Each structure stands twice: as C-alpha cells, then as structure tokens.
Computed example of a mutant assay.
Amino acid sequence: MDIARDATLHQRILNELESQIVSGAWPPGHRLPFEVDLAKQYGCSRMTVNKVMTQLAKAGLIERRKKSGSFVTQPQAQSAVLEIHDIKTEVASLKLAYSYALLATTEREADIEDRRRLDLEKPGPVLEVRCMHLAAGDPFCLEERLINLEVVPDARHADFSNVAPGPWLLERAPWTAAQHQIQAVGADRETAKLLKLKPETACLVIERRTWNTFGPVTHVRFTYPGTRHRVVADFQPSSSQPR
C-alpha cells in the first residue's frame, strides 16, 4: 500500500469536491456522485472516498442519507454574538446573491409594547419597519425594527424601499451601547408564511437594542430559519477566573 499516494489522492478528492460545493457549482440539495462511482473516477478504493465524504459531512458541507446518497447542505451564515453586522455581508459570505424587500413602514405614538422594546421612559413617536432579506431569491431573514424618532427624526423621511434600515442607521445614528438577546422559537403562522416555512418550524431570533448619547435608538428583531444561521462567540478568561 502506497500510504503517501493515498494521502495525496485523498486531499485531491477532498479539494475538488469541496470546490464544487463552495463555488456553488453544486448548489444546496444537489446529490453527489455515489461513492462507488467516485472511486472509479479517481482510480482509488471506496474506503478513500468514504473518508473524504465523512470529512465533508463533519465540516457541514454535505448530508449523508441512508440509501439515498450524499447531498449538499443548505449553508449556514454565522455571526459573532456582540457584532453589529450587515445581513448583506452575511449572505455574500455564503456566495449567494443578496436582495432585499421592504414589507411595511408604520409611524405611530409608542404603545406599551413599543416602550418596552425600546426602553423608553415616556411615550413618543416611533417608526416600525418590516423587511425581508433574501439569499438567492429565498427568504433568509425577517427584520422587524422600531426606530425612536425623537433620537433619529430623519428616519421619518428615509426611503427604506432601497436601503435596509440597519446600514442606514449605522451611518446616521452611531450607537454607543448595545444589548443582545438570543432565543429559539417556533415560527407563528404569519412568520412561517413570510419565511416559507411550516408553522412552528424552529427559528433563531436575535433581538438587539442600541443607544447613543441622546437615548434609545432602535430595537430590532431578526428571525432566521433555524437551519440557516448560527451564532458564534469568542471568550477569554477574566483575570479573576481560576486557572
């Protein structure tokens, strides 16, 4: 057995299959060639191909289904817990075409729920913006945002049909403090319809509230289908933590 040759061939097969997936040549749902066919194609043992497929599965690039074969998985975007990120950048990192659609805007006097979400001490005017972010034409994230018009009055006249409110706010109302809340929820009927899911499908919901020196700026709720997003965080031990 030529161990060096097998190792080199293993890496070659891995690189070529991974390239087909990452480049989008094999889109999500595409069935990969069967192991026996790949073994013939590369002139190697089926064991070598099996090891490659196992590695791709562990990396989350493919899903192996008993008796059906191996399929390219739906890619997952990931974001740092404390990062104020742009969803367009998330979609671009998946090598998918980004698009955006404004669903509705409503200006009103803040009700009790609005005040709770924005952490307002007293009533005031707010703007509610609902929009959908899409990846390759499919719903990627539902955005539901409240903007405090006393702190950001220009939002009243903004054209959110062409630009998402997140990037617009970052340019005009820089934040000085932020608070995040992350939870898993089952999609209600309306959310499921917008995201093209079955009701009660597991979703990842990220809520964020930001402030600047003038007061609360915005509260936003991002709802992602649970299979299309994950959250990551880096930690360092505090100086007082036992070593």
Rank of each mutant, 00 (worst) to 15 (best):
A136P: 01
A164H: 03
A158D: 09
L127K: 02
L149G: 06
A173R: 02
E144A: 11
V163D: 13
D159K: 05
L120A: 07
G137S: 10
W168P: 06
L146F: 06
E144T: 13
K122S: 14
T176G: 13
E171F: 02
E190R: 13
F160H: 06
I147S: 00
L195P: 12
K196L: 11
R145M: 15
A173Y: 07
D154N: 06
Q183D: 15
E190L: 12
L170V: 02
H157F: 13
F140Y: 15
P174N: 03
N148E: 01
P123K: 10
V152F: 02
E171A: 15
A136M: 01
P153W: 08
A158P: 11
K193P: 00
W175Y: 12
G166L: 11
P123T: 05
V126C: 04
A136N: 15
K193V: 01
L149Y: 07
S161L: 01
L149D: 03
D188N: 15
A155N: 06
I182P: 02
A136K: 03
P153S: 06
D154C: 03
S161K: 15
P139H: 10
A135C: 09
F140Q: 02
P167G: 09
G137M: 08
P125R: 09
L149T: 03
D159E: 14
D188Y: 06
E143M: 12
L120W: 07
